[in-house]
């Protein structure tokens, strides 16, 4: 039992080794591999291992992936736009809920509320997405329900197979991710600051705008990132909600890997997507820091 007798530091290092080795093998090596393979080329069944920028050239030269044309956006900008919209909608809708639980729910009932909010998140993601398709479809629950009630005569056709349905479904799927970071930030706010603001003549609204909201900004940043980043990689929702045609970047990647069997191009697309997401996230963080500093 050698490691049990040594210093805490040595024991910590020994304990950290297995998870670290695992992460190295199954996280670092794979990430390096896709970078590597993105510089190879695939023609038909043959894979050429000669270093080339062809995949990146293909991505940046045509209108499909990035630049788009008059009728249609490039797939990547469109996907970024959808993710950004989903993020905006999700965070805006989530903030009041987090605020309510933090400020208006009695302390002993808070964990019950949080538990209720988290439950839907832990139920099968695939089934939840699929249910929205069933709910919003042409002969779906909303349409047949409204017809049954006599509110409409014909089914509404703007519900499914467009970006609205993608945005509704993703906002639902990532709701919890948005609520929890904001809630944590709100919980950290010292309540005496709010009393101080009111003693100094602010009303409830200006207290919120000038004290609570700025102090909760770290939580907002957290939820923006935790919604924005995974939504860009989600291909199930666009696949089920858009039908054939209006595909997003994650669908394109998935198709390259699982159907067209062009892994190098798929790998290059994954890397470009990750970089784009990374850049957008960094710009967001930097702008936010500048804004906070600007306020003093």
């Amino acid at each position: 039992m050698g490691i049990f007798d040594t210093s805490p530091r040595a024991r910590a290092a020994a304990l950290v080794a297995p998870p670290f080795a695992y992460a190295l093998l199954l996280l670092a090596v794979p990430l390096i591999s896709i970078v590597l393979i993105s510089f190879w080329t695939q023609t038909g069944l043959t894979l050429s291992r000669v270093f080339t920028l062809d995949n990146y050239r293909e991505i940046f030269s045509g209108p499909i992936y990035i630049w788009g044309n008059q009728n249609r956006w490039g797939v990547l900008p469109l996907s970024l736009f959808v993710s950004a919209t989903v993020t905006l909608v999700t965070v805006l809708l989530a903030y009041p809920v987090a605020y309510f639980v933090s400020f208006h729910v009695a302390p002993q009932r808070k964990s019950l509320w949080l538990f209720l909010i988290t439950i839907p998140f832990w139920t099968s993601y695939l089934i939840r997405v699929f249910l929205w398709k069933v709910i919003l479809g042409y002969n779906g629950v909303v349409n047949t329900g409204l017809i049954e009630l006599g509110l409409i005569q014909e089914p509404l056709d703007f519900l499914l197979y467009n970006l609205n349905s993608v945005i509704i479904t993703l906002s639902h799927a990532y709701a919890v991710f948005a609520i929890l970071p904001i809630y944590v930030a709100l919980e950290k706010i010292d309540r005496s600051l709010l009393e101080a603001a009111q003693d100094l003549g602010e009303n409830r609204f200006t207290t919120f705008v000038r004290v609570t909201l700025p102090l909760s900004v770290p939580g907002i940043v957290g939820s923006v990132l935790i919604v924005f980043i995974p939504t860009i990689g989600d291909y199930v929702t666009p696949e089920l909600m858009l039908g054939a045609g209006g595909r997003l970047i994650s669908n394109v990647i998935q198709t390259q890997f699982l159907q067209l069997n062009n892994w190098p191009l798929g790998a290059a697309l994954s890397i470009i997507t990750m970089l784009a997401v990374g850049v957008v996230s960094l710009v967001f963080i930097l702008l936010n820091q500048r804004w906070l500093r600007g306020r003093g």
């Binding site: 199954l26 794979p30 990689g233 890997f257 892994w263």
Partner: peptide, 23 residues
């Protein structure tokens, strides 16, 4: 580093592991 999968799009992890396993 170990927490990285939380902020990586899941498709990237899937694709990367597929490349390692097969290639």
């Amino acid at each position: 580093f170990v927490m990285l999968p939380l902020v990586l799009p899941e498709i990237v992890i899937a694709v990367a592991l597929l490349v390692v396993v097969r290639q």
